[in-house]
Design a protein around this nucleic acid. Sequence first.
DNA 1: GAAGTCAGTGAACAACTGTAAGCCGAAACC
DNA 2: GGTTTCGGCTTACAGTTGTTCACTGACTTC
Lengths: 223, 223
Amino acid sequence: MSHTGAPAEGPRPGVRQAQKQQTRQALLDAGLRLLEHQNLSSLGLRELTREVGVSPAAFYRHFPDMDGLGVALVGEALGSLHAMVRAVLADGADGSAPDALIERTVTITATYVDAHRPHIRFIARERHGGVRTVREAIAAELDRFADEVATGLAVQPSSAGWSAGDLHVLAGLYVDHMVSTAAELLEAPPDDPEVRRRILHAARLRMRIISVGRRHWLDPDPD
Amino acid sequence: MSHTGAPAEGPRPGVRQAQKQQTRQALLDAGLRLLEHQNLSSLGLRELTREVGVSPAAFYRHFPDMDGLGVALVGEALGSLHAMVRAVLADGADGSAPDALIERTVTITATYVDAHRPHIRFIARERHGGVRTVREAIAAELDRFADEVATGLAVQPSSAGWSAGDLHVLAGLYVDHMVSTAAELLEAPPDDPEVRRRILHAARLRMRIISVGRRHWLDPDPD
DNA sequence: GAAGTCAGTGAACAACTGTAAGCCGAAACC
DNA sequence: GGTTTCGGCTTACAGTTGTTCACTGACTTC
């Protein structure tokens, strides 16, 4: 690469913006750290800037209010996941066994939660939390996931006879289920492999139930 | 009147306790009202007592802290639901059609959410919220629901071949799904019948998928 | 009827909070 | 080179918060 991978944004000003982004990132990191044991609406502006080591007024140079920081955190938490989801679904497109796909999905979920514990905790907290704009941001992001899963499911052979709308509902069910599993993993102590195993077992089981339901969706009613 | 139907509790002191319970209830009601637009950990003690019209110190006569009021609200919100759940499951025990049971479940969920909107909103908010004791109280209550659903499912004919553990997981899936549906109903404007219809349609669809999966759980693998 | 209990009061405490105004100094521009 | 931009700082304001204290007065008990 001729020019070292500048992320994306306009590198026009130069050092100035870099330093700004740096303290902005510091605010996000500290926010995430503090949000591990409380929720967004009870996180104080001063508490945050104190943790970072900047003056309270400095905050306003980066975010209009706490809610702004919240939606930024949503993007940070869920943004990098889209690529993963698409990758898993791409693997499932060719005729691999359904159970293998389930296994991969559960594994990826578990590793992602482990790697981004505070982020996921934040999402779980604020998904139905008190801050409307953050709620909406999370809902929009999860809806994007459902879209991606739906298009991933559409190409599979077992989707014959499914309407686009019903497929979207099914995709939402999968997404919702993985979010629940992630939340359960958060609640469990990270160093207790026994509870972990139980949670993941239950997750696999539930996904298999749903998948079986999908495959036999059009079967004649056995009454 | 010799003794007008005293509810249940020890009527030993008499009027004193009644008045106490009255302001206690006022605290709970006001709390629920204020919690409609914020979450528990950001609800101030003074804010609450101001709403009720009592002095801040009076609060401590009824609850040790805000968390205490939170767990009391959990009981109030979910306590009356157990009877309903058992009733629905009892109807499903005799051989009524599965779709009828699904229909009844969805209907009951919708009406309960409508009738106890603030309570349910509180549960959704605090289920993964910042207050540990409240989280645990909600989890325990939901687990009781899963138990009840599991024993309800066990007597149905389609549960042949299911282990008790797997049945509990299935029950948890049902419970989780209804909680999600309830949360979706909360987010939708209460006066928009169109979105409501869409949410309930999706809820029925998802429940049907799960039920089909359950019925065909032991089918030979059609690979 | 006297003695005791106890829900609720009002005042005071030592924090804490969000937000605004004006200034500084280093990076950016021409 | 000088000038402009602007991220961050300090200071200050006017509130808010949870918690404790001694107290009052209606209800309860004997």
